[in-house]
Design a protein around this nucleic acid. Structure first.
Lengths: 255, 255
DNA sequence: ATAGATACTTGACAGGGGTCAAATTTGTCC
DNA sequence: GGACAAATTTGACCCCTGTCAAGTATCTAT
């Protein structure tokens, strides 16, 4: 079964279709977008945003729905307003590699070919805005700062993939999970997280395994191991408390 | 021993210093650059190239010399005119991951931070031109096509890192080496390679191992294994003949 | 609240690739 | 061209992580 058998248009919820139909002259949602300050468009002033918002469409996806699929026409760029998304590639026999987890403020889909080279799926319920590819590329010319911002974000993403390659190629299972947890902790000073030690883990063990190049059993064993070492506390499978972030970080680098 | 103890300035050969001193009003080398048609600057017309070439400096490095180091100030962008370069990151205990091999036409060093996040070393003798970071970013504004070209090349690089993450996280040793050899074969229709089956392998077994997340012993064993399967012939360690590229490609994907 | 499905954890065992060591080939420098 | 060093190959052995299986916890829907 190919993952591309689930097309975007098939899984498009009715809600977003209504939004498209009622699309105002400019997208009022942009002005009050909660992730605007950390998104691609944060370099635009009020006037520019007003113009830019005309090409934006908002929609929601429920957890587990596909946002775009490998080998599908790369017609849109997606910007996450809230929720978590996983980006993955698959081999023909079903082996999967998750190349990244994306959150509010992240964008994806700016392919260099005319087809997506990966699949994006909602981990949690997500709120997303998207832009037609041709129009956003035009916008990069109309608003050079926007193009520079997209370039910057792409370079940042590229550098983080280098770190992930070091992890995948050279770190042990324990180091991999420590790296993952510490990174999630660094990202977790967001609204909704009150406790400084608390790290919400929206994705499943299976997702973590496919992100770190391990199996779910190894992930589970390493969680248990870190717990026995006193480095973490678990409250269910999706909430972790880091008891010693510094030690975890050191362990992540093999020290 | 930190790799950053070898600074760029320490290993700068005298030859390139003379070149800097004799720098003409514009860099005549750009006009007749052999890698111009595949490089960053291939979007510039003759006039633009003349202006752009003023910020370029040419130099050579011998095999094994360091071009730039992790944590060093990211002052320059480097463009490879000929030869092969490896990009790597290291853990504190010496474990190394090579994130990519670069060849004529490739560029590197366009960091999003003020320090390089990786080390670049010459695998063969290399001919390189470089540009001060601040000036090339200015050039992206003066010549928008240049910025777009850099952005395109960065996105292409990003997509190839996704493939490499799939390889590192989910492929077997055999599949990894098949992928590597097939990719090198695809890149090898370059001047200097006459035989259609011939693939020059400039890098060492150690480099290949650190690129594929394996050890040199495993690389060596897999070379022997592929030879016994009749898929490759070896002429020394640095020249491979692909006897059946299609089968190798299928094996690279696990089919 | 209960039942079934799904997700996660734990255990037993095995194998792919790592480690250590030695032999062989290739490259380099007078 | 010969000698030494470096790189590569090959062999023996083992461990980390994967596989297979069973048990436990959590989630979802009535």
């Amino acid at each position: 079964m190919s993952i591309s058998s689930y097309g975007f248009s098939d899984s498009e919820p009715e809600r977003s279709i209504r939004l498209v139909k009622n699309n105002p002259p400019y997208n009022a949602a942009c002005e009050k977008c909660s992730s605007r300050h950390i998104s691609l468009c944060n370099v635009l002033d009020a006037d520019e945003l007003k113009k830019f918002s005309k090409i934006s469409t908002n929609f929601h996806k429920n957890a587990k729905q596909i946002i775009c699929s490998e080998d599908e026409n790369a017609d849109h760029i997606y910007n996450i307003k809230s929720g978590a998304v996983r980006i993955s590639k698959m081999l023909s026999d079903g082996r999967r590699q998750i190349t990244g987890f994306l959150f509010a403020g992240d964008f994806f889909g700016l392919s260099c070919k005319d087809r997506y080279s990966y699949t994006a799926e909602a981990i949690t319920d997500v709120s997303i805005c998207r832009f037609p590819r041709a129009k956003i590329i035009k916008s990069f010319q109309d608003f050079p700062a926007l193009g520079e911002r997209a370039f910057d974000m792409t370079r940042t993403e590229l550098e983080s993939t280098y770190d992930q390659m070091l992890l995948l190629g050279r770190k042990t299972a324990k180091e991999k999970l420590c790296t993952f947890l510490f990174t999630m902790w660094q990202k977790s000073d967001r609204p909704g997280v009150t406790n400084k030690d608390e790290v919400p883990i929206p994705m499943s063990r299976s997702d973590i395994a496919d992100y770190l190049g391990l199996t779910i059993e190894t992930i589970s064993r390493q969680f248990t191991h870190l717990h026995k070492l006193g480095l973490i506390e678990l409250d269910g499978a999706h909430k972790v408390f880091l008891k010693n972030p510094a030690a975890l970080s050191a362990m992540a680098e093999g020290d």
